[in-house]
């Protein structure tokens, strides 16, 4: 690949990365509901950081000292983003921030994340059967 094309690819990756990171943070600030706010940074920001890391790999290749260990951070971030999103979503459910009440669990009386202590008193007063 000629150096000019490589430069253009690096610049495009940097610009895309910056834009996606910015979109993720704007979404984090502007969206209304907590569960909707969860979407923006976990997807857009992760993609943006991945693009910037890719630009770093290409830049190292272009400047004559190739190194691919930024791919390690990309893999790590892409693996951990869904896990942390899942945990934060569970925190939202635990604190009662979901928009609609949860459906009734199949076998148990209440969901485990809403149980208070040993005696399973429902933390939400009346759960509708299917809302």
């Amino acid at each position: 690949m000629s150096p000019e094309i490589l430069d253009i690819v690096i610049a495009a990756a940097l610009v895309i990365g910056g834009l996606f990171t910015l979109v993720g943070s704007i979404g984090l600030l502007k969206l209304k509901a907590p569960m909707a706010r969860l979407h923006a940074p976990t997807k857009a920001s992760t993609l943006g950081v991945g693009s910037i890391l890719l630009a770093s790999v290409l830049f190292a290749y272009a400047s004559g000292a190739p190194s691919y260990h930024e791919l390690l951070i990309i893999a790590f971030l892409f693996m951990t983003a869904p896990v942390s999103a899942y945990f934060i979503g569970k925190v939202h459910i635990h604190l009662g921030q979901n928009r609609k009440p949860l459906p009734k669990p199949a076998r148990d009386r209440i969901w485990a994340t809403q149980a208070k202590h040993e005696e399973d008193t429902p933390s939400v007063p009346e759960m509708k059967a299917d809302a």
Binding site: L28, P34, L38, P41, T42, G48, V49, L53, I88
Partner: peptide
């Protein structure tokens, strides 16, 4: 939950 999410995003942006 929002504060935890903001901290997570902050660390990801710091990596960038």
């Amino acid at each position: 939950g929002d504060r935890i999410l903001a901290l997570d995003t902050l660390s990801i942006n710091a990596v960038a």
